[in-house]
């Protein structure tokens, strides 16, 4: 993020600032001292912030959440910073690396490229929701068996993508797997092991 040297920020007259100023102006006009005190205590700020939050109902890994979130919060940041589901990784924040891949109503999605509020009423599955208790998902088993990772950071995204790749019917051949997994970067370069893991699951015929 760079500091723009002479840019007048258009955000100066944002709704938030307006709310903040108007509440202070109202306070000044009415002058009941508790309100002025409220402004001093930045309660106006809290009011403004509350206005800016949007109600959101989500089901994440089978658990229902009733939340109030800022519209600018991404699904990825909601998962990691507010729901503390840090298995979903941030690798670029621009939908270019796939580390943040989750399933939304069964479809693979880059959670960094989607705002949380866009998913009202939807069902999210993250890497934490893939295993059944202590029993690993077949794809997780296969990644361990084929050593489909090194540092492990891209792994949750690779696995979520791999499960979707098989479900979509895009795991028909090695070439097809490579093509349909190319949105998930592994800088350690464990690609051929990942492909072997996906082929193993596909050929094993287990339900994914």
């Amino acid at each position: 993020m760079n500091a723009e040297p002479e840019l007048e920020s258009p955000h100066d007259d944002s709704r938030r600032t307006f709310l903040k100023q108007s509440s202070v102006l109202t306070a000044m006009a009415l002058v009941p001292s508790p309100v002025v005190t409220a402004a001093a205590a930045e309660l106006d700020e809290k009011v403004a912030a509350a206005f800016e939050k949007v109600p959101l109902s989500l089901k994440v890994n089978g658990t229902k959440h009733k939340l109030k979130v800022e519209p600018r919060t991404t699904l990825l940041d909601l998962l990691r910073e507010q729901l503390h589901l840090t298995g979903t990784k941030k690798g670029c924040d621009y939908g270019q690396c796939g580390a943040c891949t989750v399933h939304v109503d069964g479809q693979r999605v880059n959670s960094c490229l989607s705002f949380a509020v866009m998913h009202d009423g939807q069902e999210i599955t993250t890497i934490e929701g893939l295993a059944k208790g202590d029993e690993l998902h077949p794809m997780q088993e296969a990644f361990v068996k084929h050593d489909g990772f090194q540092c492990g950071y891209c792994t949750p995204g690779q696995i979520m993508s791999a499960v979707a790749c098989v479900r979509e019917g895009h795991a028909g051949s090695e070439g097809e797997i490579r093509e349909y997994m190319s949105g998930n970067i592994c800088r350690c370069g464990a690609y051929s092991n990942i492909v072997a893991a996906i082929q193993d699951v596909k050929q094993g015929g287990q339900k994914v």
Partner: peptide, 19 residues
């Protein structure tokens, strides 16, 4: 041998420095 931390890495339980 399979990795000793493989289970943590495939379940999202491995904690990195921002987690």
């Amino acid at each position: 041998m399979n990795r000793v931390d493989g289970h943590l890495k495939v379940t999202g339980a491995a904690k990195y420095s921002a987690e």
